[in-house]
């Protein structure tokens, strides 16, 4: 229409649709698997204790091992997750700035969801960054952190969620709060995004269909919420010593199968406890 088109305006439709799509695949799909994996700390107990502990820790370790055994993990992470998330975030923030919420005047349910979608997007972005930076990239200079070690998945995750070794009660509350809100926000963002995507792509073209699909999305969101929260509760309540024992048993302590990036703080923590 206009003479001078920016790449953004020229590919407006494509970018909008890729933004929508990227929220579902890969990001949403990953969110589902991630929460299912993490919640294995709880549902893993169903199989009972095979390698010691309550079964949840072992199952979770099993899941983590599977992921970390994937070839080209870093490439998958970069292109399958981090870049899509960056793409979705950058465009999402830009798109969000093109609107002005007005729930103050128009208190309709869908309008609340519209505003929440943007709010959860902002918070979710910060949360994901914090989550990946501390648990994946090992940014331990932040307060209340504990580095995640794949071979000691349950115990290090549990420690991380409690605000690290020195976090104490405050660290536990802060990190726990951030996680609970972050998980809730992202699950909401995904479930509601799935609902709007169906309109955007033109799958639910009648009000009745939109309502029906809304129930499906709400159901999915509730299930994911349950998975996320139960994972948190599972990690916060697990016995770290028991977890270490289970992890040690699984990997065999003699092999010293600790990866190169295993880190001092974990050792320090162990020493301290002993």
């Amino acid at each position: 229409m206009t003479e001078h088109q920016t790449p953004l305006s020229k590919h407006h439709f494509l970018l909008r649709r890729l933004h929508s799509l990227s929220g579902i695949v890969p990001i949403g799909a990953f969110l589902i698997t991630h929460l299912i994996t993490n919640s294995s700390i709880v549902w893993g107990k169903l199989g009972g204790a095979q390698h010691g502990g309550d079964g949840g820790m072992a199952t979770f370790q099993h899941e983590v091992n599977f992921i970390h055994s994937m070839p080209f993990l870093l490439l998958i992470e970069v292109f399958g997750l981090w870049l899509p998330i960056a793409f979705h975030s950058v465009l999402g923030v830009y798109y969000a700035t093109t609107g002005r919420g007005n729930v103050g005047s128009y208190r309709f349910q869908a309008n609340w969801r519209y505003s929440l979608q943007r709010l959860t997007g902002y918070f979710g972005l910060i949360f994901i960054f914090y989550h990946v930076a501390t648990l994946r990239w090992g940014w331990d200079f932040l307060p209340f952190t504990n580095v995640f070690i794949a071979e000691e998945a349950a115990s290090t995750t549990a420690l991380a969620l409690r605000g690290g070794l020195e976090g104490g009660l405050i660290g536990g509350v802060v990190v726990g709060g951030v996680y609970l809100i972050g998980i809730t926000a992202l699950v909401y963002h995904f479930a509601n995004g799935l609902w709007t995507a169906a309109i955007t792509w033109g799958l639910t073209t009648s009000a009745a269909a939109q309502k029906r699909w809304g129930y499906v999305c709400a159901g999915l969101g509730a299930a994911l919420m349950l998975a996320g929260w139960s994972a948190y509760v599972g990690f916060v309540t697990l016995d770290i010593d028991e977890a270490r024992a289970v992890e040690a048993a699984l990997h065999g302590p003699a092999e010293g199968a600790r990866s190169a990036n295993s880190d001092l703080s974990a050792d320090a923590g162990r020493l301290e406890r002993e």
Binding site: M1, L8, H12, F13, R16, N102, Y106, N111, T200
Partner: peptide, 15 residues
């Protein structure tokens, strides 16, 4: 509707 300002700019607030 596929260009800037088109249908994809809808945020589904449904007001």
């Amino acid at each position: 509707l596929m260009g800037p300002g088109g249908v994809s700019d809808c945020g589904n607030a449904q007001n």
